[in-house]
Design a binder for these strands. Structure first.
Length: 415
RNA sequence: GUGACUGUAGCUCAGCAUGGUUAGAGCCCCAGAUUGUGGAUCUGGAUGUCGCGGGUUCAAAUCCCGUCAGUCACCCCA
């Protein structure tokens, strides 16, 4: 039986093949994500992976169904695997925001789905760190959120030589647009052209801009100058005060494809430009109001950081730690007559919180020892004929003899 | 949805152009021996619908068509 296309199996290390996904690395990534989010006072939430199709079609239109992993369930309900967390989150916030003091700072690590042909950095399923803040308009929150994004990547061993956050603002472009006589009906088309500027041929962009009443050199000069708006200036200064300046730069090329962004927007990229965006986000002050049918009006902002691109980057830059089984003690059973005593010892060590392994069947001593080495265990313990324990520290190549009680005691303290 | 390239053992691959005994190697895994203790060495063993289906042929891993899957790019990007 094969996997469904675009889905992944996660194996324990060592990995069976070069392109296999590591369950250990995934746990490591999630642990780091959670740890940093909590340092910033974010609380974890979650929602259903399967939602009514209308949750996504209601505000985005039917055309997105083509990209959704959707189907009819046995109750003939039109359902979709969640492609993003924001609608679910907006529902949760709209329903119960009054129970939480503002600002509400929440994060989640949902598995998200889409129905598309897979390519590099883009599968049919991925995990994403989502961090959002509700109920605060001040740009210092934007700075806080961007700082969280930066620190998350730093916690994974990435430096300012590996990545940069490109900071931009919908407001800056809106101002540019209005100042040059742009009319609201053309705003969307204009943003689309700006969004594609880096990928599209210059001549084509120039043509499209001209049709909208703009000049490409004017747009290029605006991007080149990269003059921060007042709110971007505040965000930059607060990041600077944290010592995070090297990780961020104003870059008006970034505009984000989504229609609902309203203020500062940002994307994190690897410096060498080998990968897709690592993370992206921004302000969406109107979305909660729209999704709640006008009942709740809360300013909001957030970002998403996917595991696929990030893992590719961490692998390419060799920033992932070595993963082992994390075994503390391998009990060696030289003589099967001492297996009961050894089981007793193993049980006591496990009760003390240590990870313990031993051969479940009779095996030659050297084979057991080799297994301990393969497991990269911290030490081996062997019950001797006189009832004492012979302990060998594998790394230090140190050997000592002590009583079972002493050994268990030392392993308890070592925590 | 479109296009290009790829698909042989658990893994990495050879064999395919020019069809021809029983499809190979290394690694991994398992067993035994040896070494008298730091992942060594030796011997043996297991695992293949040659992605799948059809066609051409006396004969297909090899040639042709289709299909599925993978990789990459496009479209799109939450």
């Amino acid at each position: 039986m094969e996997r469904l296309p675009g889905f992944r199996d996660f194996y324990p290390e060592p990995l069976p093949s070069k392109d296999a996904w590591s369950a250990d690395a995934r746990s490591y990534l999630f642990d780091q994500w959670r740890a940093v989010a909590r340092r910033y006072g974010f609380r974890e939430y979650d929602g259903p992976p399967l939602e009514p199709l209308e949750l996504y079609t209601a505000k985005s239109g039917d055309e997105i169904v083509g990209q959704l992993y959707n189907f009819s369930d046995k109750g003939e309900r039109a359902v979709a695997m969640r492609p993003e967390m924001t609608p679910t989150l907006a529902r949760m916030i709209a329903g119960h925001q009054r129970n939480y003091p503002k600002p509400i700072k929440w994060f989640a690590i949902p598995q998200l789905f889409r129905y598309e042909r897979q390519q590099k950095g883009r599968l049919r399923e991925h995990f994403q760190l989502n961090a959002d803040v509700f109920g605060e308009k001040d740009p210092s929150v934007d700075a806080e959120l961007i700082a969280l994004l930066i620190d998350t990547l730093r916690a994974l061993g990435l430096t300012d030589e590996d990545f940069v956050v490109r900071l931009s603002s919908r407001n800056a472009w809106q101002e540019f647009f209005v100042q040059r006589g742009g009319t609201p009906d053309r705003a969307y088309a204009f943003f689309q052209v700006i969004d594609k500027l880096e990928r599209e041929q210059e001549a084509e962009s120039a043509r499209l801009l001209q049709a909208l009443g703009f000049a490409l050199p004017d747009v290029q000069e605006f991007i080149r100058a990269a003059t921060p708006t007042e709110e971007l200036g505040l965000i930059l200064s607060q990041l600077s005060a944290r010592g995070l300046s090297p990780y961020v730069k104003v870059d008006y090329n970034v505009i984000r494809g989504l229609a609902y962004y309203t203020g500062p927007v940002f994307e994190a990229f690897d410096r060498r430009g080998e990968f897709r965006a690592i993370a992206g986000g921004g302000r969406y002050d109107n979305l909660v109001k729209v999704l709640s049918g006008g009942k709740v009006d809360l300013p909001a902002l957030g970002f998403g950081m996917g595991d696929v691109v990030l893992m590719e980057l961490l692998r390419a830059r060799a920033r992932l730690p070595e993963f082992t089984a994390g075994i503390d003690v391998v009990c060696l059973i030289e003589d099967e007559a001492r297996r009961p005593q050894t089981l007793r010892l193993a049980q006591r060590l496990r009760d003390a919180g240590r990870a313990v392994e031993f051969s479940l069947t009779a095996a030659k001593p050297d084979k057991q020892f080799k297994r301990a080495l393969e497991l990269k265990a911290r030490c081996t313990a062997q019950i001797e004929p006189d009832g004492s324990v012979r302990v060998r520290e594998l790394k230090a190549r140190d050997e000592r003899r002590l009583s079972v009680d002493e050994f268990v005691q030392s392993m308890t303290q070592a925590r």
